[in-house]
Design a protein around this nucleic acid. Structure first.
Length: 271
DNA sequence: CTTTTGACCTGACAGC
DNA sequence: TGCTGTCAGGTCAAAA
């Protein structure tokens, strides 16, 4: 489900509710997520104040005095702020109960998400330390991508979806950015010019910024922290449009599989 | 080192 | 009304 815009939307929605609040109680209803939710987490954070909410790639980070809670939404996760008494529904696996009668509640049908405790410096955490740059920051530019791609034979689409290359670009936005840049998703990463990488970086930033503005993309079940969907789906040019006409030239949008994921592109506009 | 494949899960939907 | 197979916003770990 959530790519960077959806995680960003979620983060922005929960931040004001959490910042400065004291964690009264951790409730784990289903510990078996991507990794087990540990008893250590509860022991460490109960009674602590949430100092700050931030995001690194698709990880949401809640800072407390001597460590961080790392939350990943996987494919189907969502976070909401609920009243403490609110009835739990199917797939609600985790609550962070605050001292003001509200809870941060994680729902995740597929359980590919994660809730982890980290006492390490974040830049040394095994899941974070090798992550690529943030796509919306200045250090993510055409020169960086072009240099990183040198000698790489993977397709450009799999390349930009690799979080060690750049974080936050998932299947929807990879397809969209490649369309906007006019690049065929099957092209080898190492065989794309610096000029085209500069263009691609622009379209990645553009599509992510627009999606954030629209509150993300809801395909079937993404909801923000208030339970509302995102509206970027209406702006998608190629994703989920196989067999439909290209909005630029009318050619039929093609569907192929790359690395077990669907890719959509216009064979005429993308070379 | 890079690349590919399998694994983890539930739910929705198509086709028989 | 089943049942089976396929697909879905991710990404780690192991194999090649």
């Amino acid at each position: 489900m959530p790519e960077l815009p959806e995680v960003e939307t979620t983060c922005a929605g929960i931040a004001a509710h959490l910042t400065g609040k004291r964690i009264q109680r951790v409730r784990v209803y289903q510990a078996r997520l991507r990794w087990p939710v540990t008893a250590e987490l509860a022991a460490k954070v109960e009674g602590q104040h949430i100092r700050q909410i931030s995001r690194r790639g698709k990880y949401i980070l809640l800072a407390v005095a001597d460590g961080h809670i790392l939350i990943h939404l996987g494919m189907s996760g969502s976070l909401r702020i609920v009243r403490a008494g609110e009835e739990r529904e199917k797939h609600d696996h985790f609550d962070l109960c605050l001292d003001n009668g509200t809870c941060l509640r994680l729902r995740d049908p597929r359980r590919f998400g994660a809730v982890l405790w980290s006492e390490q410096t974040l830049s040394e955490h095994p899941l974070l330390k090798d992550l690529g740059p943030e796509p919306l920051e200045r250090n993510f530019d055409g020169g960086y991508l072009h240099a990183k791609a040198l000698g790489r034979k993977v397709s450009i689409k799999e390349f930009i979806m690799n979080s060690h290359v750049v974080v936050g670009v998932g299947n929807i936005y990879a397809n969209e950015a490649l369309f906007l840049a006019g690049i065929n998703p099957t092209r080898q990463a190492g065989r794309v010019s610096g000029e085209r990488y500069a263009q691609l970086v622009k379209t990645i930033k553009q599509v992510l910024r627009q999606a954030i503005k629209q509150g993300g993309t809801t395909l079937r079940d993404f909801v923000n922290s208030e339970g509302k969907p995102g509206y970027f789906k209406q702006k998608l040019k190629v994703y989920d449009r196989a067999g439909e006409p290209c909005l630029q030239c009318g050619t039929t949008i093609k569907l192929i599989r790359q690395g077990q994921r669907s890719s959509f592109y216009c064979p005429h506009c993308q070379k």
